[in-house]
Design a binder for these strands. Structure first.
Lengths: 141, 141
DNA sequence: TCCTTATTGAGATTGAGTCTCAAAGAAGTT
DNA sequence: AACTTCTTTGAGACTCAATCTCAATAAGGA
């Protein structure tokens, strides 16, 4: 059993939640890819492997993973949300091609610092942020 | 008739679209406030004034205004989208209180520049961006 | 005024996501 | 292992924002 899975199991236990085969399957599916996938793709991939799970359970499990920072939700403003795991990955934001849907990740420390500065200026205690650049990638221009 | 309304009328004409009382009403309602409002609030406000309009027409008119940059859409990832007019307003991004829903506007030229740099680095031709800071405002901390 | 064609409105539809509730099953206890 | 408690699951109903349908209406050019 992987280190991450152990951690998930411990967290579930601490919160009085149960470690089920469905939750394990969703976990396994999500960490198996670095892509940004929608809930339904994850659901289908699990079914494809012959594991029985419902859409509702996939959504519910993703919620648990979200709350515990195992997963990050990407809302692109059109179509269903996408999800990416956060195992061994540092913070980053996204640059998205509006033509082909390609998603790249970027991180600029200077921008992060400036965000903190803005929050401070407005008296906000920052919790999270969304920073998405939309445009045409090289191939689509 | 305001300068903006004249411009709208001209654009409609150029695109073979018609200047209707409903479109005028939606326009008037949207420019009458600097708030960030959802489509249904705009719809209700127009009805309140005794002007007959349907939800579908409000959405459709907002689409026309969006395409012509009279209006900007704010997708906060939860609940319906919000809209703000762009008359006499320069570009800005938003800092949002996750408790009370307060929305402030900010602009940091340096961040804008860094975004352009990121796009260039990834070979993207930038079209638009979303930059939203979520946190707790002074009152809600 | 007439004519062509875009627009409107009421209500149906879509689609992502959530909820319901009876049945199943996890995990602690004896 | 059997029992008990309480969470989880799944199928499908439901929600809600937003879009679509299509017959009736109206804009605006001729």
């Amino acid at each position: 059993m992987s280190k991450g899975l152990k951690r998930l199991k411990k967290i579930l236990h601490n919160e009085g939640l149960r470690f089920t085969s469905q939750r394990e399957a969703v976990w396994n599916e999500i960490i198996s890819s670095d892509d940004h996938r929608e809930a339904d793709e994850i659901y289908m991939a699990i079914r494809q492997k012959g594991i029985s799970v419902s859409r509702a359970t996939v959504y519910r499990t993703i919620d648990v993973l979200l709350k515990n920072n195992f997963v990050r939700k990407l809302d692109l403003g059109v179509g269903p949300s996408k999800f990416e795991h956060r195992i061994d990955s540092h913070h980053h934001d996204h640059i998205i091609c509006i033509q082909c849907g390609r998603i790249d990740e970027f991180l600029v420390d200077q921008i992060e610092d400036l965000q903190d500065k803005v929050a401070k200026e407005y008296g906000f205690k920052l919790v999270r942020h969304i920073h998405q650049l939309f445009g045409l990638c090289e191939n689509c221009q």
